[in-house]
Design a protein around this nucleic acid. Structure first.
Length: 297
DNA sequence: GCAATTTGACCTTT
DNA sequence: AAAGGTCAAATTGC
């Protein structure tokens, strides 16, 4: 990855987003709700942090997440003993963050275009809500190792922290309904629809690259979906496009994967394991995953 | 009947 | 020993 150039683009884009958020903040002075104000400040804080991280190349150095030992494993049937190293590496991931908000017309990246299958749920210490564990539906059939974790936010029930791990190597076949229910099974389907719709107008995406120890390459991304009061939103025709697999090729998640891929490729890691398989040449330096401006228009 | 989800047990890490 | 992550049998839904 052409790191200097890309980082420059990153900083520029984030700077632009920061500028827009600042403008929005100014306009929200009287008519806005506390939530909106809060969100704006949240966005600003995150952007500032991200810009700072980009400048310091903090997250450039995040290596890949799995060892060569892991890469030897057949993905189709993970054996318990062999998962030990995977966990070891995962626990050492480190993060950088990017948050995205969504504007009214921004068809949020809520749907990543993939289908997920839940394989576990765990009560997390100190957390009000359990964490759900998901892996790609095509794990067994196509060996796709993508996984994600979904956990409801502590303070705001409408916020879901979604952490993605690995890159999809499968062909995406998920239907909107399948995805909608499988992505957030912590809610019933009725709530899911509200939640998903709410993402159109209030989406916050947080990207994390966990703190990496040099000897344990790792990278993950965390998306925080921030839904506002569901009942305040109305179904729009465009919402269907949001879930359409045909649009997923350019959705935020896939784009982020490309970005993450580029990041890790800069580490010169020899591994082509589950995390980031896309070559750096496919890096979208336009950074449209983080087309932050769209969220403020 | 098949696929997805639930959930308690098990395993690894800290 | 505690906590987090995964497995897999049982259950549920289509």
């Amino acid at each position: 990855m052409k790191m200097d150039a890309d980082m420059s683009v990153l900083v520029n884009e984030l700077g632009h987003g920061h500028e827009l958020a600042t403008k929005l903040d100014a306009h929200l002075s009287s008519a806005s709700t506390d939530l909106c104000k809060s969100l704006v400040h949240d966005i600003l804080a995150c952007l500032e942090k991200t810009m700072s991280m980009a400048r310091t190349s903090a997250f450039i150095d995040s290596p890949q997440s799995f060892t060569s030992e892991d890469s030897k494993q057949l993905p189709f049937k993970v054996q318990r003993k062999e998962t030990s190293k995977k966990r070891k590496t995962q626990s050492k991931w480190t993060t950088s963050q990017v948050k995205l908000g969504s504007g009214p017309e921004a068809e949020g990246p809520l749907e990543d275009g993939y289908s997920w299958r839940k394989y576990g749920q765990k009560e997390i210490l100190g957390a009000k809500h359990p964490r759900g564990y998901y892996r790609c539906t095509h794990r067994n059939t196509q060996g796709c190792l993508a996984m994600k974790q979904v956990q409801r936010s502590e303070d705001n029930p409408s916020i879901f922290n979604v952490t993605y791990r690995g890159t999809h190597t499968c062909s995406r076949k998920s239907s909107p309904s399948t995805v909608a229910t499988s992505s957030f099974p912590l809610l019933n389907q009725h709530d899911d629809r509200h939640l998903l719709l709410s993402f159109q107008t209030n989406l916050k995406v947080k990207t994390e690259i966990l703190d990496s120890k040099v000897q344990e390459p790792a990278c993950s991304s965390s998306f925080t979906f921030h839904g506002s009061k569901p009942e305040s939103h109305v179904i729009s025709p465009s919402s269907t496009a949001f879930f359409s697999p045909t649009t997923s090729e350019s959705n935020y998640f896939s784009d982020f994967n490309e970005i993450a891929s580029a990041e890790t490729s800069a580490t010169d890691s020899p591994l082509l394991d589950m995390d980031f398989l896309l070559p750096s040449s496919e890096m979208n330096t336009d950074f449209d995953l983080f087309d932050i401006s769209s969220f403020f228009s």
